[in-house]
Write a protein that binds this DNA or RNA. Structure first.
Lengths: 150, 150
DNA sequence: CACGAAAATGAGAATCATTATTATTCTAGA
DNA sequence: TCTAGAATAATAATGATTCTCATTTTCGTG
């Protein structure tokens, strides 16, 4: 991740938090920094491991604040544990591949045509149930390169 | 849900459990019965409410056993709480619409052509990350009929 | 620069869904 | 009927997440 991009990203986050009257403190900044480095939703346990010295309670609170401000998005893995990633407006629209073996999640982007196709299908699914669609994603399960041995 | 179909379903479950040397007891049967009635993954809390008199610990154990035998599938909602539904080989392949407001989940089926299209996209996503695909689903978010007031 | 108010932090306690334990009850087969 | 193994129910334990509150930091203002 280029440094210039990272700086711009922090600036964008700062502005976003400003709109919500929330301070962009060093603690919150370090959470965002940790999330920039990974290429998929990361568990709180792993984030805590990476951020030595940060109390778990503070990490949780920072993530909650950032989630409410729309800076990060909260997901849950197969065990129901929380996983966080930077929001789509920061990282771009993408989908997830989940390894059924080790549980890691990776981001994948598709072409505009493929995205359009998924969008149409998602809208069709929503319509069929009488819902007004607000978002969608494809969750793909598979065996990751380091777990497959065929 | 026609009674004949329900009887066939119970019979199919019984055979499945038999293969795993697991008894199809009345407790487990009542869990399956409760799951037949709903049209989407149901929370354990709601299932427990519907099955008056069944201890929570027994419900959890039954769900675990049925999950291990492949009779039910476990999901997690936006809060990370467990939700269960009958497995795809019993209910057919389908997708979920989640109400962003009240959290209810509903099943939706698509045409064979649309499913094929999703399958192709899912495989493309898996390939791009070097994964061997084992499954996929579209998660659609929206506002359900009873929550929308436009 | 100093002050005061509001916000943020850290340490630990509390919560709550889920899982483990264990004693009791049930079931299938001899 | 008797017995061994399976299933159940009640309860305790676990563990991720949230809450509390005392302390610290930040920001605006004089």
């Amino acid at each position: 991740m280029p440094e210039r991009r990272t700086a711009e990203l922090h600036e964008a986050v700062r502005r976003r938090l400003e709109e919500h009257n929330i301070r962009y403190t060093t603690g919150r900044r370090s959470v965002v920094t940790a999330l920039v480095r990974v290429d998929g939703p990361e568990s709180t346990a792993e984030l805590h491991r990476r951020m030595r010295g940060v109390p778990l309670s503070s990490l949780y609170r920072s993530l909650t604040v950032l989630d409410e401000a729309g800076v990060v998005e909260k997901h849950h893995d197969a065990d129901g544990l929380a996983r966080y990633e930077l929001a789509e407006w920061l990282m771009g629209h993408h989908h997830h591949v989940v390894c059924v073996d080790c549980g890691t999640v990776e981001d994948v982007s598709l072409s505009d045509e493929d995205e359009e196709m998924i969008g149409r299908l998602a809208r069709k699914i929503a319509d069929r149930a009488g819902y007004r669609e607000t978002g969608h994603k494809i969750e793909v399960e598979g065996v990751c390169p380091s777990c497959r041995h065929d």
